[in-house]
Write a protein that binds this DNA or RNA. Sequence first.
DNA 1: TGAAATGTTGGGGCG
DNA 2: ACGCCCCAACATTTC
Length: 438
Amino acid sequence: MQKLAIVWFRRDLRLDDNAALYHALKKHKAVLPLFIFDTNILNQLEDKYDCRVDFIHQQISELNNELAEQGSGIKVYHDTPENTFTKLTQEFDIEAVYTNHDYEPYAKERDERISKLLNDKGIVFNTYKDQVIFEKDEVLKKDGTPYTVYTPYMKIWREQLNDFFLSSYPTEKYMGNLYPMNSSPILSLELLGFKKTDVNIPSKKAAIDVIENYDKTRDIPSIKGTSRLSVHLRFGTISIRKLARFALQHNQKYVNELIWREFYMMILWHFPHVVKSSFKPGYDAVKWRDDEEQFKRWCEGKTGYPIVDAGMRELNSTGWMHNRVRMIVASFLVKDLLIDWRWGEAYFAQKLLDFELSSNNGGWQWAAGTGCDAAPYFRVFNPYLQTKKFDPDLKYIKKWVPEFEELTYPQPIVDHAFARDRALKAYKIGLNKDETKY
DNA sequence: TGAAATGTTGGGGCG
DNA sequence: ACGCCCCAACATTTC
Protein backbone atom coordinates (compact mmCIF):
# COMPACT_ATOMS: atom_id res chain seq x y z
CA MET A 1 0.00 0.00 0.00
CA GLN A 2 1.03 3.52 -0.78
CA LYS A 3 2.44 5.43 2.20
CA LEU A 4 1.07 8.91 2.59
CA ALA A 5 -0.01 11.71 4.91
CA ILE A 6 -3.41 13.33 4.78
CA VAL A 7 -4.33 16.99 5.12
CA TRP A 8 -7.94 17.29 6.14
CA PHE A 9 -9.42 20.62 5.03
CA ARG A 10 -12.41 21.92 7.00
CA ARG A 11 -12.64 25.65 7.37
CA ASP A 12 -9.28 26.54 5.88
CA LEU A 13 -10.12 26.18 2.20
CA ARG A 14 -6.91 27.57 0.74
CA LEU A 15 -3.42 26.36 -0.16
CA ASP A 16 -1.76 29.63 0.69
CA ASP A 17 -0.48 30.22 4.27
CA ASN A 18 -2.19 27.14 5.69
CA ALA A 19 -0.63 25.77 8.89
CA ALA A 20 -1.65 22.12 8.62
CA LEU A 21 -0.85 21.90 4.93
CA TYR A 22 2.55 23.47 5.53
CA HIS A 23 3.53 21.08 8.30
CA ALA A 24 2.38 18.06 6.32
CA LEU A 25 4.18 19.07 3.14
CA LYS A 26 7.35 19.89 5.01
CA LYS A 27 7.57 16.51 6.66
CA HIS A 28 6.05 14.06 4.16
CA LYS A 29 6.80 13.10 0.59
CA ALA A 30 3.23 12.22 -0.39
CA VAL A 31 0.52 14.48 1.01
CA LEU A 32 -3.08 13.79 0.09
CA PRO A 33 -5.59 16.65 0.46
CA LEU A 34 -8.98 15.59 1.78
CA PHE A 35 -12.38 17.18 2.19
CA ILE A 36 -15.43 15.53 3.75
CA PHE A 37 -18.94 16.72 3.06
CA ASP A 38 -19.99 15.67 6.53
CA THR A 39 -23.39 13.96 6.43
CA ASN A 40 -23.80 14.60 10.17
CA ILE A 41 -24.07 18.26 9.21
CA LEU A 42 -25.56 18.14 5.71
CA ASN A 43 -28.39 15.78 6.63
CA GLN A 44 -29.68 18.35 9.10
CA LEU A 45 -30.15 20.96 6.39
CA GLU A 46 -33.71 20.97 5.18
CA ASP A 47 -33.44 23.49 2.37
CA LYS A 48 -31.70 22.03 -0.66
CA TYR A 49 -30.90 25.53 -1.91
CA ASP A 50 -28.18 26.27 0.62
CA CYS A 51 -25.79 29.10 -0.20
CA ARG A 52 -23.17 27.88 2.26
CA VAL A 53 -23.04 24.38 0.83
CA ASP A 54 -22.89 25.92 -2.63
CA PHE A 55 -20.08 28.23 -1.52
CA ILE A 56 -18.07 25.40 0.04
CA HIS A 57 -18.60 23.26 -3.04
CA GLN A 58 -17.33 26.04 -5.29
CA GLN A 59 -14.28 26.60 -3.11
CA ILE A 60 -13.41 22.90 -2.98
CA SER A 61 -13.74 22.76 -6.73
CA GLU A 62 -11.43 25.76 -6.97
CA LEU A 63 -8.93 24.08 -4.60
CA ASN A 64 -9.09 20.98 -6.76
CA ASN A 65 -8.22 23.05 -9.83
CA GLU A 66 -5.30 24.70 -8.07
CA LEU A 67 -4.07 21.32 -6.90
CA ALA A 68 -4.44 19.93 -10.42
CA GLU A 69 -1.91 22.53 -11.56
CA GLN A 70 0.51 20.89 -9.11
CA GLY A 71 -0.25 17.45 -10.52
CA SER A 72 -2.47 16.56 -7.60
CA GLY A 73 -6.05 17.08 -6.49
CA ILE A 74 -8.36 16.87 -3.51
CA LYS A 75 -10.11 13.68 -2.48
CA VAL A 76 -13.72 14.38 -1.63
CA TYR A 77 -16.03 12.21 0.45
CA HIS A 78 -19.73 12.50 1.21
CA ASP A 79 -20.02 10.58 4.46
CA THR A 80 -19.40 10.85 8.19
CA PRO A 81 -15.80 11.60 9.19
CA GLU A 82 -15.67 8.20 10.98
CA ASN A 83 -16.63 6.22 7.90
CA THR A 84 -14.37 8.28 5.71
CA PHE A 85 -11.28 7.67 7.81
CA THR A 86 -12.12 4.00 8.22
CA LYS A 87 -12.26 3.65 4.45
CA LEU A 88 -9.10 5.69 3.95
CA THR A 89 -7.15 3.53 6.39
CA GLN A 90 -8.19 0.46 4.40
CA GLU A 91 -7.13 2.01 1.11
CA PHE A 92 -3.86 3.68 2.12
CA ASP A 93 -0.96 3.24 4.48
CA ILE A 94 -1.49 6.49 6.35
CA GLU A 95 1.49 7.85 8.28
CA ALA A 96 -0.29 10.83 9.79
CA VAL A 97 -3.31 13.09 9.48
CA TYR A 98 -2.90 16.88 9.60
CA THR A 99 -5.64 19.37 10.24
CA ASN A 100 -6.28 22.82 11.69
CA HIS A 101 -8.02 23.57 14.97
CA ASP A 102 -11.76 24.04 14.89
CA TYR A 103 -13.25 25.42 18.10
CA GLU A 104 -16.98 24.84 17.90
CA PRO A 105 -18.65 22.34 20.23
CA TYR A 106 -19.49 19.86 17.45
CA ALA A 107 -16.01 20.16 15.95
CA LYS A 108 -14.34 19.68 19.31
CA GLU A 109 -16.20 16.45 19.90
CA ARG A 110 -15.75 15.25 16.30
CA ASP A 111 -12.01 15.77 16.44
CA GLU A 112 -11.75 13.88 19.72
CA ARG A 113 -13.50 10.92 18.12
CA ILE A 114 -11.36 11.00 14.98
CA SER A 115 -8.19 11.41 17.00
CA LYS A 116 -9.06 8.31 18.99
CA LEU A 117 -10.04 6.34 15.89
CA LEU A 118 -6.72 7.16 14.24
CA ASN A 119 -4.61 6.67 17.35
CA ASP A 120 -6.11 3.20 17.78
CA LYS A 121 -4.73 2.38 14.37
CA GLY A 122 -1.36 3.85 15.25
CA ILE A 123 -1.85 6.98 13.16
CA VAL A 124 -0.85 10.38 14.53
CA PHE A 125 -3.43 13.16 14.42
CA ASN A 126 -1.58 16.50 14.22
CA THR A 127 -3.56 19.68 14.70
CA TYR A 128 -2.57 23.33 14.37
CA LYS A 129 -3.77 26.82 15.07
CA ASP A 130 -4.67 28.44 11.78
CA GLN A 131 -7.86 30.48 11.76
CA VAL A 132 -6.90 32.96 14.48
CA ILE A 133 -3.87 34.96 15.57
CA PHE A 134 -4.42 34.03 19.23
CA GLU A 135 -6.50 31.03 20.08
CA LYS A 136 -8.56 30.03 23.09
CA ASP A 137 -5.89 30.03 25.79
CA GLU A 138 -3.26 32.35 24.41
CA VAL A 139 -4.73 35.59 25.75
CA LEU A 140 -5.56 35.07 29.40
CA LYS A 141 -5.71 37.16 32.54
CA LYS A 142 -2.73 37.05 34.91
CA ASP A 143 -4.47 34.41 37.02
CA GLY A 144 -4.80 32.16 33.98
CA THR A 145 -8.55 32.55 33.55
CA PRO A 146 -10.17 33.81 30.35
CA TYR A 147 -11.22 37.42 29.85
CA THR A 148 -14.93 38.08 29.77
CA VAL A 149 -14.64 41.77 28.96
CA TYR A 150 -13.53 42.87 25.53
CA THR A 151 -11.43 45.96 26.19
CA PRO A 152 -8.81 44.46 28.51
CA TYR A 153 -8.72 41.39 26.26
CA MET A 154 -8.09 43.62 23.25
CA LYS A 155 -5.29 45.48 25.02
CA ILE A 156 -3.43 42.33 25.98
CA TRP A 157 -4.08 40.84 22.51
CA ARG A 158 -2.32 43.84 21.03
CA GLU A 159 0.48 43.81 23.59
CA GLN A 160 1.27 40.19 22.91
CA LEU A 161 1.26 40.60 19.16
CA ASN A 162 4.55 40.33 17.30
CA ASP A 163 5.91 39.14 13.96
CA PHE A 164 6.00 35.55 15.14
CA PHE A 165 2.21 35.42 15.33
CA LEU A 166 1.74 37.25 12.05
CA SER A 167 4.15 35.42 9.76
CA SER A 168 2.80 33.24 6.98
CA TYR A 169 3.48 29.57 6.34
CA PRO A 170 5.29 29.29 2.99
CA THR A 171 3.41 26.29 1.64
CA GLU A 172 4.42 27.12 -1.93
CA LYS A 173 7.99 25.94 -1.23
CA TYR A 174 6.89 22.36 -0.76
CA MET A 175 4.12 21.79 -3.30
CA GLY A 176 6.26 19.07 -4.85
CA ASN A 177 5.31 16.83 -1.95
CA LEU A 178 1.65 16.65 -2.92
CA TYR A 179 0.34 13.18 -3.68
CA PRO A 180 0.23 12.78 -7.49
CA MET A 181 -3.27 12.34 -8.89
CA ASN A 182 -4.94 12.55 -12.26
CA SER A 183 -7.13 15.63 -12.31
CA SER A 184 -10.84 15.00 -12.21
CA PRO A 185 -13.82 17.11 -11.18
CA ILE A 186 -15.08 16.79 -7.61
CA LEU A 187 -18.46 15.34 -6.66
CA SER A 188 -21.25 17.47 -8.09
CA LEU A 189 -23.52 19.54 -5.89
CA GLU A 190 -26.47 17.45 -7.12
CA LEU A 191 -24.83 14.24 -5.96
CA LEU A 192 -24.53 15.81 -2.53
CA GLY A 193 -28.28 16.35 -2.61
CA PHE A 194 -28.13 20.12 -3.06
CA LYS A 195 -29.03 22.64 -5.72
CA LYS A 196 -27.13 25.48 -7.28
CA THR A 197 -27.91 28.86 -5.67
CA ASP A 198 -27.21 32.40 -6.81
CA VAL A 199 -24.74 32.83 -3.94
CA ASN A 200 -22.86 36.10 -4.24
CA ILE A 201 -19.22 35.71 -3.24
CA PRO A 202 -17.70 39.02 -2.08
CA SER A 203 -14.53 40.12 -3.81
CA LYS A 204 -11.38 39.96 -1.71
CA LYS A 205 -9.75 42.63 -3.85
CA ALA A 206 -12.52 45.14 -3.16
CA ALA A 207 -11.92 44.73 0.57
CA ILE A 208 -8.44 46.23 0.29
CA ASP A 209 -9.76 49.69 -0.52
CA VAL A 210 -12.63 49.49 1.95
CA ILE A 211 -10.46 48.62 4.95
CA GLU A 212 -8.42 51.81 4.56
CA ASN A 213 -11.52 53.90 5.31
CA TYR A 214 -13.33 51.37 7.41
CA ASP A 215 -13.63 53.55 10.50
CA LYS A 216 -15.36 56.29 8.49
CA THR A 217 -17.61 54.20 6.28
CA ARG A 218 -18.54 51.15 8.32
CA ASP A 219 -21.81 52.44 9.73
CA ILE A 220 -23.44 53.53 6.48
CA PRO A 221 -25.45 50.60 5.12
CA SER A 222 -26.18 52.25 1.76
CA ILE A 223 -22.52 52.10 0.72
CA LYS A 224 -19.95 49.32 0.53
CA GLY A 225 -18.19 50.53 3.63
CA THR A 226 -17.44 47.20 5.28
CA SER A 227 -14.96 44.61 4.05
CA ARG A 228 -17.44 41.79 3.48
CA LEU A 229 -14.63 39.38 4.24
CA SER A 230 -16.59 37.54 6.92
CA VAL A 231 -17.44 34.62 4.67
CA HIS A 232 -13.81 34.27 3.63
CA LEU A 233 -12.75 34.24 7.26
CA ARG A 234 -15.49 31.75 8.04
CA PHE A 235 -14.29 29.20 5.52
CA GLY A 236 -10.63 30.13 5.49
CA THR A 237 -10.55 31.32 1.90
CA ILE A 238 -8.38 34.15 3.20
CA SER A 239 -5.46 33.96 5.63
CA ILE A 240 -6.06 35.70 8.95
CA ARG A 241 -2.34 36.40 9.27
CA LYS A 242 -2.17 38.23 5.95
CA LEU A 243 -5.37 40.10 6.68
CA ALA A 244 -4.22 41.13 10.16
CA ARG A 245 -0.88 42.38 8.79
CA PHE A 246 -2.72 44.51 6.24
CA ALA A 247 -5.24 45.79 8.77
CA LEU A 248 -2.56 46.73 11.31
CA GLN A 249 -0.97 48.97 8.72
CA HIS A 250 -4.17 50.57 7.54
CA ASN A 251 -7.03 50.72 10.02
CA GLN A 252 -7.08 50.10 13.75
CA LYS A 253 -10.89 50.06 13.95
CA TYR A 254 -10.83 47.15 11.56
CA VAL A 255 -8.17 45.40 13.64
CA ASN A 256 -10.53 45.72 16.59
CA GLU A 257 -13.19 43.87 14.64
CA LEU A 258 -10.76 41.03 14.02
CA ILE A 259 -10.09 41.00 17.75
CA TRP A 260 -13.85 40.84 18.49
CA ARG A 261 -13.94 37.76 16.27
CA GLU A 262 -11.22 36.06 18.32
CA PHE A 263 -12.78 37.25 21.56
CA TYR A 264 -16.07 35.52 20.76
CA MET A 265 -14.30 32.35 19.59
CA MET A 266 -12.41 32.29 22.87
CA ILE A 267 -15.66 32.84 24.81
CA LEU A 268 -17.40 30.00 22.98
CA TRP A 269 -14.53 27.66 23.76
CA HIS A 270 -14.44 28.42 27.48
CA PHE A 271 -18.17 28.94 28.00
CA PRO A 272 -19.95 26.55 25.63
CA HIS A 273 -23.18 26.99 27.59
CA VAL A 274 -23.71 30.24 25.65
CA VAL A 275 -24.95 28.15 22.72
CA LYS A 276 -28.05 27.20 24.70
CA SER A 277 -28.43 29.91 27.30
CA SER A 278 -27.43 33.38 28.39
CA PHE A 279 -23.83 34.01 29.32
CA LYS A 280 -25.18 35.68 32.44
CA PRO A 281 -27.52 33.13 34.00
CA GLY A 282 -29.83 35.72 35.54
CA TYR A 283 -31.07 36.78 32.13
CA ASP A 284 -32.67 33.43 31.38
CA ALA A 285 -35.43 34.51 33.74
CA VAL A 286 -36.61 37.25 31.38
CA LYS A 287 -40.09 36.36 30.23
CA TRP A 288 -40.19 36.59 26.44
CA ARG A 289 -43.46 37.17 24.65
CA ASP A 290 -42.50 34.86 21.78
CA ASP A 291 -45.32 35.90 19.47
CA GLU A 292 -45.01 33.61 16.45
CA GLU A 293 -46.98 35.84 14.13
CA GLN A 294 -44.81 38.86 14.94
CA PHE A 295 -41.68 36.76 14.58
CA LYS A 296 -42.83 35.76 11.12
CA ARG A 297 -43.33 39.39 10.17
CA TRP A 298 -39.86 40.23 11.43
CA CYS A 299 -38.38 37.38 9.37
CA GLU A 300 -40.19 38.52 6.25
CA GLY A 301 -39.35 42.19 6.67
CA LYS A 302 -42.93 43.32 7.25
CA THR A 303 -42.74 45.04 10.63
CA GLY A 304 -43.70 48.49 9.36
CA TYR A 305 -40.31 49.84 10.49
CA PRO A 306 -38.50 50.58 7.21
CA ILE A 307 -34.94 50.20 8.51
CA VAL A 308 -35.76 46.86 10.14
CA ASP A 309 -37.61 45.60 7.07
CA ALA A 310 -34.81 46.74 4.77
CA GLY A 311 -32.29 44.73 6.77
CA MET A 312 -34.37 41.59 6.83
CA ARG A 313 -35.06 41.81 3.12
CA GLU A 314 -31.39 42.30 2.37
CA LEU A 315 -30.66 39.19 4.42
CA ASN A 316 -33.40 37.15 2.78
CA SER A 317 -32.40 37.99 -0.73
CA THR A 318 -28.60 38.09 -0.47
CA GLY A 319 -27.58 35.98 2.55
CA TRP A 320 -25.86 39.02 3.99
CA MET A 321 -26.81 42.06 6.08
CA HIS A 322 -24.85 45.17 6.90
CA ASN A 323 -23.48 45.02 10.45
CA ARG A 324 -25.08 48.24 11.67
CA VAL A 325 -28.44 46.93 10.47
CA ARG A 326 -27.83 43.56 12.13
CA MET A 327 -27.68 45.44 15.42
CA ILE A 328 -30.84 47.38 14.63
CA VAL A 329 -32.94 44.36 13.66
CA ALA A 330 -31.60 42.40 16.62
CA SER A 331 -32.46 45.17 19.07
CA PHE A 332 -35.91 45.40 17.49
CA LEU A 333 -36.65 41.69 17.77
CA VAL A 334 -35.42 41.36 21.31
CA LYS A 335 -36.45 44.66 22.86
CA ASP A 336 -39.39 45.93 20.80
CA LEU A 337 -41.02 42.56 20.13
CA LEU A 338 -39.64 40.96 23.28
CA ILE A 339 -38.89 37.74 21.42
CA ASP A 340 -36.20 35.34 22.66
CA TRP A 341 -32.84 36.26 21.16
CA ARG A 342 -32.29 32.59 20.29
CA TRP A 343 -35.07 32.78 17.72
CA GLY A 344 -33.27 35.59 15.96
CA GLU A 345 -29.95 33.83 16.32
CA ALA A 346 -31.39 30.71 14.70
CA TYR A 347 -32.87 32.67 11.85
CA PHE A 348 -29.55 34.39 11.15
CA ALA A 349 -27.80 31.03 11.37
CA GLN A 350 -30.07 29.68 8.70
CA LYS A 351 -29.80 32.66 6.35
CA LEU A 352 -26.31 34.12 6.65
CA LEU A 353 -23.67 33.02 4.18
CA ASP A 354 -21.05 34.23 6.66
CA PHE A 355 -22.68 32.45 9.61
CA GLU A 356 -20.14 31.86 12.34
CA LEU A 357 -21.49 30.33 15.55
CA SER A 358 -19.27 32.29 17.90
CA SER A 359 -19.81 35.72 16.33
CA ASN A 360 -23.51 35.19 15.71
CA ASN A 361 -24.11 34.03 19.26
CA GLY A 362 -21.91 36.79 20.67
CA GLY A 363 -23.67 39.42 18.61
CA TRP A 364 -27.14 38.29 19.61
CA GLN A 365 -26.25 38.03 23.27
CA TRP A 366 -24.72 41.47 23.01
CA ALA A 367 -27.92 42.90 21.54
CA ALA A 368 -30.11 41.13 24.08
CA GLY A 369 -27.90 42.30 26.92
CA THR A 370 -27.49 38.71 28.08
CA GLY A 371 -23.86 38.23 27.03
CA CYS A 372 -20.46 38.92 28.48
CA ASP A 373 -19.57 42.56 28.03
CA ALA A 374 -22.96 43.09 26.39
CA ALA A 375 -24.99 46.19 25.86
CA PRO A 376 -26.85 46.90 29.13
CA TYR A 377 -30.46 45.76 29.04
CA PHE A 378 -31.81 49.30 29.03
CA ARG A 379 -29.98 50.22 25.85
CA VAL A 380 -32.78 50.13 23.31
CA PHE A 381 -32.22 51.24 19.72
CA ASN A 382 -34.75 53.67 18.34
CA PRO A 383 -35.27 52.60 14.69
CA TYR A 384 -36.06 56.16 13.59
CA LEU A 385 -33.02 57.70 15.23
CA GLN A 386 -30.82 54.95 13.83
CA THR A 387 -32.21 55.77 10.40
CA LYS A 388 -31.56 59.47 10.90
CA LYS A 389 -27.99 58.81 11.95
CA PHE A 390 -26.97 56.08 9.53
CA ASP A 391 -29.31 56.29 6.55
CA PRO A 392 -30.30 59.99 6.56
CA ASP A 393 -31.14 60.15 2.86
CA LEU A 394 -33.05 56.83 3.12
CA LYS A 395 -30.95 55.39 0.31
CA TYR A 396 -30.64 51.98 1.96
CA ILE A 397 -34.34 51.88 2.84
CA LYS A 398 -35.39 52.87 -0.68
CA LYS A 399 -33.27 50.10 -2.12
CA TRP A 400 -34.89 47.33 -0.07
CA VAL A 401 -38.29 48.76 0.84
CA PRO A 402 -39.23 50.91 -2.15
CA GLU A 403 -42.91 51.00 -1.10
CA PHE A 404 -42.20 52.34 2.39
CA GLU A 405 -44.21 55.55 1.84
CA GLU A 406 -47.16 53.90 0.15
CA LEU A 407 -50.47 52.79 1.57
CA THR A 408 -49.59 49.15 0.93
CA TYR A 409 -46.75 49.39 3.43
CA PRO A 410 -47.83 48.00 6.81
CA GLN A 411 -48.40 50.12 9.90
CA PRO A 412 -45.74 49.66 12.60
CA ILE A 413 -46.21 46.29 14.24
CA VAL A 414 -45.85 47.97 17.64
CA ASP A 415 -45.39 51.51 18.92
CA HIS A 416 -41.74 51.99 19.75
CA ALA A 417 -42.18 54.13 22.85
CA PHE A 418 -44.67 51.65 24.26
CA ALA A 419 -42.46 48.69 23.33
CA ARG A 420 -39.40 50.26 24.90
CA ASP A 421 -41.23 50.75 28.18
CA ARG A 422 -42.57 47.20 28.05
CA ALA A 423 -39.07 45.81 27.46
CA LEU A 424 -37.57 47.75 30.36
CA LYS A 425 -40.28 46.41 32.65
CA ALA A 426 -39.89 42.81 31.44
CA TYR A 427 -36.13 42.91 31.94
CA LYS A 428 -36.49 44.48 35.37
CA ILE A 429 -38.92 41.84 36.50
CA GLY A 430 -36.81 39.02 35.03
CA LEU A 431 -33.70 40.38 36.67
CA ASN A 432 -35.50 40.95 39.96
CA LYS A 433 -34.87 44.66 39.76
CA ASP A 434 -38.51 45.54 40.12
CA GLU A 435 -38.51 48.27 42.74
CA THR A 436 -42.32 48.29 42.87
CA LYS A 437 -42.24 45.22 45.04
CA TYR A 438 -40.81 47.20 47.94
C1' DT B 1 -21.42 49.78 18.78
C1' DG B 2 -28.24 54.36 22.68
C1' DA B 3 -31.92 57.09 23.93
C1' DA B 4 -34.88 59.55 27.00
C1' DA B 5 -35.26 62.26 30.99
C1' DT B 6 -33.51 65.65 33.62
C1' DG B 7 -30.37 69.40 34.72
C1' DT B 8 -27.65 73.57 33.45
C1' DT B 9 -26.38 77.50 30.89
C1' DG B 10 -26.69 81.60 28.41
C1' DG B 11 -28.62 84.65 24.87
C1' DG B 12 -32.43 87.38 23.67
C1' DG B 13 -37.17 89.30 24.11
C1' DC B 14 -39.63 92.11 26.87
C1' DG B 15 -41.72 94.72 30.62
C1' DA C 1 -30.04 99.05 32.56
C1' DC C 2 -32.15 95.35 34.97
C1' DG C 3 -34.65 91.22 36.13
C1' DC C 4 -37.51 87.78 34.55
C1' DC C 5 -38.86 84.28 31.50
C1' DC C 6 -38.40 81.30 27.62
C1' DC C 7 -36.06 77.96 25.36
C1' DA C 8 -32.45 76.14 22.49
C1' DA C 9 -28.16 73.96 23.16
C1' DC C 10 -25.44 71.31 25.66
C1' DA C 11 -24.26 68.22 29.74
C1' DT C 12 -25.41 64.73 32.99
C1' DT C 13 -28.07 61.09 34.73
C1' DT C 14 -31.05 57.37 34.27
C1' DC C 15 -33.10 53.55 32.10
